[in-house]
Nucleic acid binder design. Structure first.
Length: 594
RNA sequence: GGGGGCGUGGUGAAGUCUGGAGUUCACGCCGGCCUGUCAAGCCGGAGGUCGCGGGUUCAAAUCCCGUCGCUCCCGCCA
């Protein structure tokens, strides 16, 4: 006989009526009528109503009155149907209640720093400071459970496909590429540092060289960059890689994984196959490499309409190699002031301006610039953009990339659903090898181990060269990315050269890896899914902190434990580290408040 | 590095624009009444240096400057 309980309250149903149960859990709510006392008892399975009636003397009157929210208690009682008219249809256990026959307080609770009750949304700093209480909330408990369900689903699929789960080191060597590394000083080699991995990238490729063939890992990754609602300094990826694999093998596997995850977490089947879109298409139609395809409002090219326009703003842009594009934002019910705000927003985004038009009942276009446009142009706009009465047409004339980006942003702010009730997956393929920097130069869009589609193209026309890399997008969020890797050391050398990394430099940084490629490396490809982002979308959360048990604040602090913290001078001495005087001085200045 | 929002009893908010007694609301807490509620109800009570520092003013939660914290965004995130 278990010491504390023989049942979980949240699981009790009408079929359990008559059973004597021993329950343990927390008092989520209490309703003390002076005589009878109702408790909503919460455990990991959910809630159930416990009734303590003094006539049945489940406990001394004194103990019953002393009960408070969040006390941890043990109750024995009998499952019984609720009285006529007192069934609670809002609770899964609402048909039954437990008539208490004995009660024991296992642990009392001080007055809480905030109410666990779902109806009150406490300040997030406070929630993080008392995360162990925050996690008692149904919403957070549900998020934790769903996260576990999602990861379990991933493991099921990959185990069924004969993947090997392999752990890779979290103390690795720092490389200057990519995100800023999180560093860990070495005591045995004072003055030297490990880095925490940004991803297990090179290790998983080594596993391919090692003959693992099918690898996955639920891997903690670290990137020391600024926080966002979807970015934390440490986060979790489902990392996977396969030998003798090409892009289709990866995408098929990903489809199987996310299908199972959505099924297990949401209980629904996503449509197959997950659609694919090229990067070029995504930019042209949605102005972003991670389109939210839950709604239309696609970007339309108006270049032909204005091919011989006399409207100078448009004509000059086209003559300079720019573009004129627009979106039909639909009937937004915007006033003049509303459109002025959109113009300001477009300018904040870097556009020179924004032309707006409204389709009138008779199909004509009302716009501040209508008088500068010919009849043919006006009707061409309405036709090309499929304008219906009431529709707001928004047009940007600018450099191609700028126009796409601005319209993409406007599209999101005007049309994006504010929840994740619908799920639209998308694979974006054929990413470019390079992306343009703000200064007009080129920089590698991916890590240097990504295979180009054609190395000659990569060398000769960097602006259009395509790489064998791909992203998975869900509801406009980048869920992850991957690529076919370079497995030929000769090709790898050429790619480094084109990327501007000298042979000596490549040797110095990655010599150990380049050498590995020389011992019979199989063709391989892989991917990594951002678990936190995925789960947050499935759980309809706006912020990945809500699906992380102990996240950090935007400034990288943990209000619960106080991390990061100052360490003892003796610790620093062992590491050979001196903290600069002005930094030390700042330690004592951090007069914290509240 | 830059821009925006927020900080008021234990909790959440209103009050701040337009300065005039720590005022208000809900929850929680304490005490009393109450045997079928499920946000239980009714009555009473306690509890705040308005994040912190400085300035303006006869007078500051309110205006100004600085600072700390939380948050959203741009940059950044191969």
């Amino acid at each position: 006989m278990a010491k504390y309980r023989n049942a979980h309250g949240g699981n009790l149903r009408a079929s359990d009526i008559g059973n004597e149960v021993h329950l343990a859990g927390w008092i989520a709510r209490r309703r003390d009528h002076g005589g009878v006392v109702f408790l909503d008892l919460r455990d990991a399975s959910g809630h159930v109503q416990v009734v303590l009636n003094p006539d049945d003397a489940p406990a001394s009157e004194e103990v019953m009155r002393r009960l408070r929210n969040e006390f941890c208690i043990m109750v024995k009682g009998v499952v019984r149907p609720r009285l006529e008219g007192t069934v609670n249809p809002d609770m899964p256990t609402g048909e039954v209640e437990v008539g208490g026959t004995s009660l024991e307080v296992l642990s009392t609770a001080d007055t809480l720093p905030f109410q666990v009750d779902e109806r009150f949304d406490a300040d997030e700093g406070r929630r993080l400071q008392y995360r162990y209480l925050d996690l008692r909330r149904d919403r957070m408990a549900d998020n934790l459970r769903s996260r576990s369900t999602a990861i379990r689903a991933m493991r099921h699929v990959l185990d069924d496909l004969d993947f090997l789960e392999v752990e890779t080191p979290t103390l690795v060597v720092s490389t200057p590429e990519g995100a800023r590394d999180m560093l860990v000083p070495s005591r045995l080699r004072p003055g030297q540092f490990y880095a925490l991995p940004q991803s297990p990238q090179l290790f998983k490729q080594l596993l391919m060289v090692a003959g693992v063939e099918r690898y996955y890992q639920v891997a903690r990754c670290y990137r020391d960059e600024d926080f966002r609602s979807d970015r934390q300094v440490e986060f979790t990826q489902l990392d996977l890689e396969g030998s003798f694999w090409d892009q289709d093998d990866v995408l098929d596997t990903l489809q199987a994984i996310v299908t199972r995850v959505v099924k297990d977490v949401r209980g629904i089947d996503i449509p197959h196959p997950i659609p694919r879109m090229t990067y070029a298409d995504a930019i042209a139609r949605y102005g972003t490499d991670k389109p939210d395809v839950r709604f239309g409002m696609e970007i339309v090219d108006l270049g032909e309409v204005f091919a011989s326009s006399e409207f100078r703003a448009f004509a000059a842009t086209l003559a300079d190699g720019g573009t004129v594009r627009g979106i039909n934002a639909g009937d937004q019910g915007l006033s003049r002031a509303g459109f002025d705000k959109l113009v300001a927003q477009a300018q904040d985004l870097g556009a020179k301006g924004l032309v707006w038009m409204v389709v009138e009942e008779d199909g004509s276009l009302r716009s501040p610039v209508a008088k500068f446009l010919s009849e043919a142009e006006l009707s061409g706009i309405a036709a090309t953009m499929d304008g219906k009465p009431g529709d707001a047409l928004l047009i940007v004339a600018d450099e191609v990339a700028k126009a796409a980006a601005v319209l993409g942003e406007l599209r999101l702010s005007l049309g994006r659903p504010d929840n994740h009730d619908d799920l639209e997956f998308l694979f974006v393929v054929d990413f470019p090898v390079f992306e343009r920097t703000a200064e007009g130069g080129f920089v590698a869009a991916h890590h240097p181990f990504t295979a180009p589609l054609d190395v000659a193209e990569m060398r000769n026309s960097p602006e259009t060269a395509v790489s064998r890399s791909y992203d998975m997008v869900l509801n406009g969020a980048e869920l992850g990315s991957g690529s076919v890797r370079i497995h030929d050391p000769e090709l790898q050398s050429q790619v480094f050269e084109i990327l501007g990394v000298s042979a000596d430099e490549a040797q110095a940084r990655f010599g150990w890896f380049l050498e590995a490629l020389r011992y019979g490396t199989p063709p391989h490809a892989g991917f990594a899914i951002g678990v936190d982002r995925f789960v947050s979308i499935l759980q309809n959360e706006q912020n990945i902190r809500e699906v992380m048990p102990f996240p950090k604040t935007q400034t990288g602090a943990d209000p619960l434990t106080g991390a990061p913290g100052v360490v003892a001078d003796t610790q620093l001495e062992e590491l050979g580290i001196d903290v600069r005087a002005e930094v030390r001085a700042a330690w004592s200045d951090t007069t914290s408040d509240s």
